[in-house]
C-alpha cells in the first residue's frame, strides 16, 4: 500500500499543475486542538490538507473534500461547538460517506458510546471509549507497540488518553496498548487513542492517505 502511494506521489511531482488534484484533499477539523500538527503530517504523507471550521469548509471549489481528520484536543469543546453550529449532523453524514481518521479526542467523537463521563458522539465507530482512562497528565506516556501495519513497532504518544473498552465484530485492531485496541479500523474509519501527529513517524498518516486514495477510486 505504501509502495502504491509512493508511485502516486512521484507521478504528481514529475507532472505539471494540471493534474495537481491527484493529491487527495483531506480536511482537518479546526475547532481547536493540534490540527496544525495534523495538517503538517498530512502534507508530509502526500495529501493536501484543508482546515474545516464551518459547514462550508467541507467543500472546496465546489467539490467535497476526499476525507477528514478529527484531531486531538478536548472532545467536550469540539462536541459543544459541533452541536451549537449545526455541524454535528453534517459531519456525521460526511464521515459516513468519506474516510475519517480520529485521534484521541477525534476517536472519542467517532465512537458509538463514550464513558467517564458519558457524552454524545457521532456513533459511527462500533466501539465503547472511556475518556481519561489512564489518569491525568502525569500519567501521560510514550510507548512502543507492535502493529499490523508494518513489521517495525509503532511509537505511540498518549496524552490524557482514552481507552477503547469494547469493539464490535466489524472493527479490526491494528495496534494495542496493554491488550486494549489503540489503533482500529472499521471500513474507511480509522481511530487512534494516541497521537501519531506528534511523532516523526508518518506510517499511520500514510496509511490513512492511502485509504483516502483507494476510496476515491
Amino acid at each position: 500500500m505504501r509502495l502504491g502511494w509512493e508511485c502516486q506521489n512521484h507521478f504528481v511531482k514529475s507532472s505539471g499543475p494540471t493534474i495537481k488534484r491527484a493529491l487527495p484533499r483531506i480536511g482537518v477539523l479546526a475547532i481547536q486542538g493540534d490540527y496544525a500538527a495534523h495538517a503538517a503530517a498530512l502534507a508530509e504523507a502526500g495529501a493536501e490538507p484543508s482546515l474545516v471550521k464551518t459547514l462550508d469548509d467541507l467543500r472546496l471549489d465546489g467539490e467535497s473534500l476526499d476525507g477528514i481528520v478529527l484531531p486531538g484536543g478536548e472532545s467536550t469543546t469540539m462536541l459543544k461547538f459541533l452541536e451549537r453550529h449545526g455541524m454535528f449532523e453534517a459531519l456525521s453524514e460526511f464521515c459516513r460517506t468519506r474516510p475519517a481518521f480520529g485521534t484521541c479526542a477525534g476517536a472519542i467523537l467517532l465512537a458509538r458510546e463514550v464513558r467517564n463521563p458519558p457524552q454524545r458522539a457521532l456513533g459511527l465507530l462500533d466501539a465503547v471509549v472511556e475518556r481519561n482512562a489512564y489518569g491525568r497528565q502525569i500519567d501521560s506516556a510514550i510507548l512502543h507497540s507492535e502493529t499490523t501495519l508494518d513489521p517495525e513497532p509503532l511509537e505511540m504518544v498518549f496524552i490524557r488518553a482514552p481507552r477503547i473498552l469494547e469493539i464490535g465484530p466489524g472493527v479490526e485492531t491494528l495496534a494495542w496498548r496493554e491488550g486494549s485496541p489503540a489503533l482500529v479500523r472499521q471500513g474507511t474509519l480509522l481511530a487512534a487513542t494516541f497521537h501519531p501527529e506528534l511523532s516523526s513517524d508518518r506510517r499511520v498518516h500514510r496509511f490513512f492517505v492511502a485509504e483516502v486514495m483507494a476510496a476515491r477510486g
Binding site: D34, R160, H195
Partner: peptide, 8 residues
C-alpha cells in the same frame, strides 16, 4: 503535547 491539545 498537552499544550498542543489546548491550542485554539
Amino acid at each position: 503535547g498537552l499544550a498542543e491539545m489546548l491550542k485554539g
